[in-house]
Every structure is written in structure tokens, then in C-alpha cells.
Simulated scan of single mutants.
Amino acid sequence: MEFADEDVMLGQESEEENSELSDSELQEAFAKGLLKPGMNVVANKPRTPVNSVEGLKQCLADFRKSLPWVERLDLTNPPAEDVFSKVDGKVENLANGDVNADDDFQREMFFYRQAQASVLEALPLLNKMGIATKRPDDYFAEMAKSDQHMQKIRKKLLTKQMIMEKSEKARKLREQRKFGKKVQIEVIQKRQKEKKAMMNAVKKYQKGMTDKLDFLDGDQKTGKESAQGSKKAMNKKGPSSKRKYKDQKFGFGGKKSGKKWNTKESYNDVSSFRAKVAHGKEGKGGKKGKGGKNKRPGKSVRRKMKSRS
């Protein structure tokens, strides 16, 4: 290891000796101001462009000699004629120098017509050589991507479609719930309104403000139907013995409500009024209690008697 270190040290010293300037000399030059930025950087000289037209032509000729036209498919031709300009009466056949490079529409049309001319020239040549230019009906192109990759894409598309369908179903359910809730609220409001109207009609009838029972049409209908059914049954079989006994005892009914209401005559009639009975001066059966008086005084009297003593 010691010999190796010595060899390295000797190599560094020999490199410093072989260099043009040592560290001390560089320090002195820097202190004097002789060294400036960029002096020790190797600057690359700019390359002058060379437009060798003859060399390019020579390379092109070599390519043409080595490869047939079917392999190259190169064509050099002017743009095709503008049919629309001829129909309109305008004769316009632009050359390379007549195209304005700043006009995007004119430039793109020039490229389009030049490609059209190339196709019109290349198709007859390919047909002469027996090369098919149309795709057959039973042509199956090889996929650029693998089947596994396409399966992943298909799964992603299916998941997206399912998510969209679920969101659509959820949206429809929300709309149906909103509509159902709206209908339910309307039904509840209608029932409350009918109930309120019926209660008002019942109150008016109870107060005697009206004698109509139109609010009981539904009940009357059901009552009529049941009465008709019972009448038919009675006509067939006749009334039962229980019914006959009640009719004989109580009669056939009649107006029962309002019997206890006061009238002007009943209010003014005081012939049946008995003060002793009304004020509780008589006991049961109109007789006084034992001895005629209570033997024991009341609680308040007893307290007074105690306070006096």
C-alpha cells in the first residue's frame, strides 16, 4: 500500500511539472489582474452552413439507382387544377412562387391540390404494376395493442357505463320521490281542507245557523243503502220479536237531539221549582235528619270556640 501511495504522489508531481503554469504562478497572475472570466473556457466556433446542391443531387441519384419506384413511391408534380375556379370562370393555377406563405388558406389548398395530383398520377402506375390499391372486404388488420390491454379498456368502459346508468336511475328515483312527496302533500292538504270545512259545517249546524246536512251526503248514502237492505230483509222475513217489543215500548223513534234545550216558555216556567230541595234543606225523601239538627258544630265554629276559651 505504501508503494502505491508513493506512485500516486509521484504521478501528481509529474503532472504539475508538465503543466504550463503551476498554482503559485496562477495565483500571482490572478492577484495582478491578468486572469479574466472566459479566458480559460474553450469556445466552440460556429459552424458555417454548407448548401451543397450537387452533393444532395448525387445522394438522390444514388437512392434512385439502388431502390425501385415501388419501394420509394416518390413523385414530383405541380398541384392539380382547381375545378371550382374554372366553374366560376376564374382561371387560377398557382405555381410554387405564386403562393403566399402567410395566407394559411391558400397554403393549405396548395398542399391539398398537390397531394391530389400525386394520387391521380400514382394510382394508374400502381394498377399497371398489378398492385392492389383497395382494401378487400375480408381484410382483418392486426391490432396495435394486445388483447389484455383491450380487455382492460373494455372493463373500464363497462364500469363507466354502469356508473352512468346508476346515476341516471338515482336521478329518476329522486325525481319520482319529489313528485310522490308533492302528491302526498297535496292529498294531505286536501284532506285537511275537507276536514276543516266539515267541522265548520258541523259547528254551524250545532249553533242553529243552518239546518242543512249536505256535509253528510256520504254517510246518508251509506245509511240509505243499509236501510234499503234492512227493509228488503224485513219484507222477506218480517221484524223480529225483539224489534216488535222495542217498537211497542219506545215507539218508532223520532227527533232525540235537542230535547233538553231551553225554550222561552221552559225558561219562564218556575212552577216546579222547590227552594228547600234546591238549597238542600231537606234530606233524602224530604225528611230531616235525626234530632233535626247536627249535634257537632262545624270546623270553623270549633276553632272559634277554642280561641275564645
Score class of each variant (00 low, 15 high):
residue 258 G to M: 00
residue 146 S to Y: 08
residue 47 R to H: 15
residue 130 G to Q: 02
residue 204 K to H: 11
residue 124 P to S: 03
residue 16 E to F: 14
residue 202 V to A: 10
residue 118 S to L: 03
residue 29 A to S: 10
residue 234 M to D: 06
residue 117 A to G: 08
residue 273 F to C: 02
residue 121 E to H: 06
residue 249 K to N: 00
residue 149 H to K: 13
residue 256 K to N: 01
residue 166 K to E: 11
residue 124 P to D: 02
residue 143 M to H: 12
residue 253 G to W: 00
residue 281 K to I: 14
residue 51 N to E: 13
residue 50 V to S: 10
residue 17 E to C: 08
residue 73 L to S: 08
residue 82 D to N: 11
residue 286 G to S: 02
residue 54 E to N: 01
residue 271 S to P: 04
residue 186 E to W: 05
residue 82 D to V: 01
residue 278 A to C: 01
residue 213 L to F: 10
residue 301 V to N: 15
residue 97 G to M: 14
residue 189 Q to N: 11
residue 11 G to R: 14
residue 105 F to Q: 05
residue 62 D to C: 12
residue 277 V to E: 01
residue 188 I to D: 15
residue 284 K to G: 05
residue 89 G to F: 06
residue 309 S to K: 15
residue 66 S to L: 13
residue 12 Q to E: 15
residue 219 D to T: 02
residue 182 K to E: 11
residue 247 D to C: 13
residue 259 K to V: 05
residue 293 K to G: 00
residue 152 K to F: 03
residue 131 I to P: 09
residue 204 K to E: 02
residue 290 K to Y: 12
residue 218 G to C: 09
residue 47 R to T: 14
residue 123 L to Y: 07
residue 171 R to M: 11
residue 155 K to A: 02
residue 38 G to L: 04
residue 251 G to V: 01
residue 275 A to H: 10
residue 74 D to Y: 08
residue 198 M to R: 15
residue 108 E to Q: 05
residue 120 L to K: 10
residue 5 D to V: 13
residue 249 K to V: 04
residue 2 E to C: 08
residue 14 S to Y: 01
residue 112 Y to T: 08
residue 115 A to H: 12
residue 120 L to D: 06
residue 217 D to I: 07
residue 278 A to I: 07
residue 209 M to K: 08
residue 205 Y to I: 06
residue 155 K to C: 05
residue 127 N to R: 14
residue 276 K to A: 15
residue 126 L to F: 00
residue 291 G to M: 03
residue 76 T to R: 09
residue 131 I to G: 04
residue 264 K to M: 03
residue 66 S to N: 11
residue 255 K to P: 04
residue 192 Q to E: 09
residue 130 G to I: 06
residue 16 E to G: 01
residue 135 R to V: 11
residue 282 E to P: 07
residue 43 A to S: 12
residue 29 A to V: 10
residue 235 N to C: 04
residue 96 N to I: 08
residue 90 K to A: 00
residue 104 D to P: 05
residue 110 F to W: 05
residue 122 A to G: 03
residue 60 L to F: 10
residue 181 K to M: 12
residue 266 S to K: 00
residue 264 K to E: 10
residue 21 L to Y: 12
residue 64 R to F: 03
residue 272 S to P: 02
residue 135 R to G: 08
residue 250 F to Q: 03
residue 292 G to N: 06
residue 170 A to H: 09
residue 258 G to N: 03
residue 221 K to F: 04
